[in-house]
Nucleic acid binder design. Structure first.
Lengths: 330, 330
DNA sequence: AATATGCCGTCAGTATTTGTCGCATAAATA
DNA sequence: TATTTATGCGACAAATACTGACGGCATATT
């Protein structure tokens, strides 16, 4: 039994393809976990494991301390097996994430999606794909592709708190190479921004990840500017280019069409939203809600199905914009 | 070595908690996989496996053919281990899916999210959560909660092609119990709809999943109406309540502000989009695109930052709506 | 060139695994 | 209710495997 557990621990200790572990390293880790074994045993175990097609594990050829790794592109094996429920949910998640995440980010999960596919392809479940659909609410803009190698470096830099060096191509600028002190990632629309400082400067920059090239990890630790917190930085509205006017709650009153009323019944704006009938074709929606740019976008997107009644200044804002639009289209 | 593989196969054959497998069943499956073993061996193996805290596997007490299962609520163990990249991506996916999927759907993946948490909580990666943020583009409407037991039955019914029975509470109706012939799931806004026929009728209904109660699987096979295909059903516009006028491509010309221009450079409407400068404050965007409801929503949401120049009928449509709005707000 | 390290074949002792048998108990059947 | 069948489990001996020790050889390291 002890040997079985040792095999499990060994399988855990062996990393995925780009990384690797040498036989002596493995021995050391196993011994520190409490397995009192000989190097020869570890060597034999590795040979046994790799000789089974079940475990796509391989080692470097030649080079003296052999290094072991899981061959990439294989989907993970797991216990207990992925249930059909989970598999279905993975496929749904895949559909949802497709227009949101850049391919190089999404592909990090492809092993799991493949596993889900396999699970659903068993005999009877074949036609599941024809049984699920999504009607998108928003216009799918194409997510900007990020170079996979760049993404890998940025991930690693953020996780390990290290700086990196990369070439950046700003929209109206030529390429430049920076020494980057990464502070955080922010997803906005379909773009991923790196929040960072450059070189030894202290001003905080937003850099779109898809504009990077040739990233390379440096051996210098990240220095966080005094008082910096990503959450606050976002809350300050640094990413809502046209900054929010009033980030505080407002008491919103809307006159809406029956269709919008039904939609808000299904998916309310907030748990305390109230809806009352005005007449057959109009309903009054009352809700306390954060006065964000997203709210404005949403209200505008509904066009003539919604009339903002209160607060007065929001109504005035809409009236002003509509009069601008009137002039544009007349 | 053969025994190690047998253990792996056994671990795969044992299902998760609500399900279970009896010792003789296990024996049979192992033998059909090619393991020539005795029942006694299987029994002994099971005892060994369950006596290790590594494998949260348990069996029924008493009842004679013992049934084995993985104890629930445990996150799966997997080989190779989840990489930090994957873990980070899982956390991002979690953030993205949170406003999109109802809790009961999302919770199906919680084991994986937990696994990702564990992976990221190792020593040095502690502060990753403070390094990732999302600035939502859309107003987060609250996804309607679906009863977990209902979801389980619906999933199973769809996968196994079986009917089910459930109580449905339509908005302006009292509760009724239907015999449901499920055809597919459609996600729209934040609501999941079941497309189905009822009893022996042939007209196709859309039923919001969160309005179901007390679902129960029936032992009758699903009958798909002649010529029905979910994809076509959606394409026909059955879910765009105000049906799309022209589902065909149009040649769109927009006059946009510098801000929108920059946004479209980052995340284009299509790969063939063209942008040219009109003057310092205005750019011309030309693109061939599907004339969908989502496009209209998007155009409206941008307010006065965008002027539709062509096609003429779309411009006319916007002009008409704006004049309606003008009257509303005057 | 000398030394150290790691891989691998072999061997014998030890530990583990396995089938068999017997008994006890729980379901199934007459 | 009695009888049969199926399952779980302890014990035991034979078969199997696992393990550490040793040594030869190839490849790094100094």
């Amino acid at each position: 039994m002890d040997t079985l557990l040792r095999y499990f621990d060994m399988l855990c200790l062996i990393p995925k393809a780009p990384n690797s572990i040498s036989t002596p390293e493995l021995l050391e880790k196993l011994q520190s976990t409490g397995y009192d074994v000989d190097l020869r045993t570890v060597q034999r175990d590795l040979i046994k494991i790799t000789s089974s097609p079940l475990f796509p594990i391989s080692s470097t050829e030649g080079k003296k301390p052999l290094r072991w790794f899981w061959i990439d592109n294989s989907s993970p094996m797991q216990f207990p097996m992925m249930s059909t429920d989970e598999a279905l949910t993975f496929k749904l998640a895949e559909i949802f994430l497709e227009p949101l995440l850049p391919p190089s980010v999404r592909s990090r999960l492809s092993g799991y999606f493949d596993l889900a596919d396999k699970r659903l392809q068993e005999s009877k479940f074949e036609h599941w794909a024809e049984k699920v659909g999504v009607v998108p609410n928003n216009l799918p803009l194409l997510p900007a592709e990020i170079e996979p190698s760049v993404l890998a470096v940025v991930y690693e830099a953020l996780l390990k708190n290290q700086r990196f060096k990369a070439t950046y191509h700003a929209v109206h600028n030529s390429e430049k190479t920076y020494d980057i002190n990464p502070l955080g990632l922010v997803f906005r629309h379909n773009v991923i921004y790196l929040v960072a400082t450059l070189f030894e400067y202290t001003d905080i920059k937003q850099l779109a990840l898809h504009r990077f090239k040739n990233a390379e990890l440096l051996d210098r630790v990240v220095k966080v500017p005094e008082g910096f917190a990503l959450e606050d930085y976002i809350a300050e509205g640094r990413f809502n280019y046209p900054v929010n006017d009033n980030p505080e709650d407002i008491s919103l009153k809307l006159k809406v069409s029956p269709f919008i009323k039904q939609m808000l019944q299904e998916t309310p704006l907030s748990s305390k939203q109230q809806i009352t009938e005005i007449d057959e074709d109009h309903y009054l929606v009352e809700v306390i809600i954060d006065n964000t740019r997203q709210l404005h976008r949403w209200l505008r997107s509904l066009g003539a199905s919604v009339e903002v009644l209160e607060p007065a200044d929001l109504r005035a804002e809409f009236a002003a914009e509509i009069s601008t639009l009137s002039k544009m289209y007349q």
